[in-house]
Design a protein around this nucleic acid. Sequence first.
DNA 1: GGAACTCGCCAC
DNA 2: AAACGTGGCGAGTTCC
Length: 464
Amino acid sequence: MNIHPNTEQAYRLFHDGTLAFARAEQQGIRVDMAYAERKKQELDDEIIRLENTFKQTKLYRHWQHVVKKDPNIHSGTQLSHFLYNVKKFKPVKTTVSGQGATDEEALMDLNLPELKDLIQIRKLKKVRDTYLEAFTREQVDGYVHPSFNLHLVKTFRSSSDRPNFQNIPKRDKESMQIIRDALYPRPGHQLMEIDYSGIEVRIAACYHKDPTMIQYINDPTTDMHSDMAKQIFMLDEFDKCVKEYSHLRSAVKNGFVFPQFYGDYYGNCAVNIACEWCQLPTGKWNKEDGFSMFGDHLGNYFIRRGIKSLEDFTQHIKHIEQDFWYNRFPIYRRWKEHWWKQYQKNGYVDLLTGFRCSGILSKNDTSNWPVQGAAFHCLLWSFIELDAIMRRNKWDTRLIGQIHDSIVLDVHPNELEMVAKIAQQVTCHDLPQAWKWINVPLEIEMEIADVDRPWSELKNYVIT
DNA sequence: GGAACTCGCCAC
DNA sequence: AAACGTGGCGAGTTCC
């Protein structure tokens, strides 16, 4: 049995990490309490208004009639029973326990305008109850102190709770604005966020060393996601700066490339790209289907090229998946196979950072966990180092949180330039110096909000 | 009346 | 043959 030589270092990383996180927890994040209370009140009113609207619909009255009392409109069980057993609608999908699903996708598929109110009610309740309410409940003297845990996650990542600082809405503009408007720096300071760009792809490359992938990472004039978008959408030209192409690139990046890396297969990827990103229907496609691109509908574009349905598109993606793993990234594929075999033989997989995952792992787990864990450890190492530098030099700037591949800081304006410079140095230079197995360049992106402005107002920051 | 569960949904 | 990973949390439900 091999004993991994870095076990002591792995212990040290978590020991030092725990102390650095404790200091961030103690520091905390300022909450605008007056705003949070006011906003909760506004949401109460809006939710009641939407509930009343919903309760005046024929659909609701029918529901009320069949159960002979007031149904709970927030109960998935009751809604599922009414829609699929009473009304006999056909659910697009079922939940794990087998009942008809009532999530957003399933409700939208029924195409009933009344249900859109229900979806909006859910969203506002989520914002109010999961986030604003948690902030006001957990705050002490106007600061929340989220916990950052290093002992709970089987991949040796971190988790956060009370409140969870790692799942604050970002993509949905409306939710993002409402919630991040409540979070502020200390008076006279600025919120800053420093992210590792594409850290999991880079760390995966340190394991599998696929030359094509390393080439993509090393050469900034190439772009893996653009190349895959060109192939999937059968394009000769591709400029990711053009709006239409940039949407296709996102569709391919989030609907094909990343799911493939995690171990998904062409069937799900085809649905991801076509239905979730390009508004194409399941089954047969029409000329008017899909979003409009350069004055043409995507449905028409594909039909002219012989792809006339989701089934055709699925076959297309199947071929591309084959090409992806057998021609484009064959070394990456062999690494996955090798690690699965090694796990079956030994009963564990080791991370490049000296941790060992054992117990029951699926085939996908054996390649996903080491990447996910070690990528986070890059962030953790940088967090510890920055914390040490800032304390040694008695800076006023504080680290206040971390979201797997990013660090959130509460910065004194006079220290901003210095913080940015040192952060660049630590994350992209000192870390690869310390961990020789990092054989690809690392990059970060920085964002900053103005003095006394909330987290919703982050803007790109470039070192001058 | 609390534990354990399901479901839905937020993040990376 | 089968089919994407890691978490936290609120509300509803079921079980004891």
